[in-house]
């Protein structure tokens, strides 16, 4: 593994998310999908975000591009983007959702790779057309040059028969080919950050490994940061440099990948790690599960959201008196203050 385990120099993160809150105002009530999440993305590194289904990973990362669907609103927090050392930092939360600033960030500075490459392409336009469109939005190229660049990218992402694929419709490609096309589309405008939202979930294991390798390779060539969202801790171990663990709309623990795997502090992280199946489990015991169930986002507990699944919460914590807040327990290792002693 080519982990960049070199010491984290005190550079400023390329993206800082502080206390982000995203709520969905539905007829049935307010869904607090993200409730005070904070994390940093460092230049050239990969941040893995793990967490149970529905904990707000997608919503939190889509907020970075202001792509939250309509009943949803960013109600609090800031997202600071420092793409260019020479330029001013941009607070993405203060941009207009349809203004030109956010449009130049979308795809140009930060781009997205989706889980479902089938439905993520329009079925009535050719793949080439949809990528050329992205290039023409961010680069001043004429049609032929944009086409040439697309072809280059098809070759770089290892698309077989690139010329032919350009003129095909997404449903004529295989799953892996579609995901390669998706990656080409996300990277063609040289973004500084790529958000990959479960990019390999829909693929079989071999293709999964190929796509992960491809992403790592391209990262080494281009030097972009990756935010990698997944349920799969195995994938996290393989691709991430840093890990943020998300639970019910909050980041509950953040650290380098080694720290997370070797000295997890939060009980939820521990639980996740214990539930990885391993071949050394000779006795065929049942995998340990985390006791309790996730509260519905409508009725989040006050204070620490994990307290009713916690094995030994402190008295203050049990009564919900302690607010959630990340504190640094060792250099670069942050844990929610309630649960430092729980795990």
């Amino acid at each position: 593994m080519t982990k960049k385990n070199t010491k984290i120099e005190k550079q400023k993160p390329i993206l800082s998310v502080n206390g982000l809150k995203v709520h969905f105002f539905t007829d049935e009530g307010t869904v607090k999908a993200v409730e005070g999440a904070s994390f940093d993305v460092l230049a050239g590194r990969t941040l893995g975000i793990v967490g149970e289904s529905g904990c707000g990973k997608s919503v939190a990362t889509r907020s970075l591009l202001r792509l939250v669907d309509s009943p949803g609103k960013i109600v609090d927090g800031e997202i600071i983007y420092r793409g260019d050392a020479n330029k001013k930092e941009i607070n993405i939360t203060s941009l207009k959702t349809s203004g030109s600033d956010i449009k130049s960030i979308r795809g140009g500075e930060i781009s997205l790779i989706f889980q479902e490459p089938m439905t993520s392409f329009s079925p009535v336009h050719t793949v080439g057309n949809q990528i050329i469109e992205a290039i023409k939005l961010h680069k001043k190229l004429n049609k032929d040059d944009a086409k040439g660049l697309t072809l280059d990218w098809f070759k770089r992402v290892g698309m077989p028969d690139p010329e032919q694929r350009m003129n095909q419709y997404p449903w004529q490609l295989s799953g892996g080919q579609r995901q390669r096309a998706m990656i080409a589309m996300a990277l063609c405008c040289d973004p500084k950050i790529v958000i990959a939202d479960e990019p390999t979930t829909a693929l079989d294991v071999t293709t999964q490994a190929q796509i992960l390798d491809l992403l790592k390779e391209l990262q080494e060539e281009n030097g972009m940061s990756i935010i990698f969202i997944t349920h799969d801790l195995g994938v996290i171990a393989e691709i991430s440099d840093d890990v943020s663990v998300m639970y019910l709309g909050n980041i509950v623990e953040s650290a380098s990948v080694d720290e997370i795997f070797h000295s997890p502090k939060h009980p939820y992280t521990t639980g996740l790690l214990n539930s990885i199946p391993s071949i050394t489990n000779k006795n065929r015991e049942r995998l340990p599960t985390i006791s309790g169930s996730i509260p519905h986002p409508h009725n989040r507990p006050s204070g620490c959201t994990f307290r009713n699944r916690c094995q030994n919460p402190s008295d203050d914590c049990r009564e919900g008196k302690i607010e959630m807040k990340l504190i640094e327990v060792s250099p670069g290792h942050f844990v929610d203050q309630c649960c430092i002693n729980c795990g």
Binding site: R106, S111, A134
Partner: peptide, 16 residues
Amino acid sequence: LSKPYVVTARAKGISE
């Protein structure tokens, strides 16, 4: 409008 390809296109930075 609620299909994923719309979000993909939006994420490219195309005008609404």
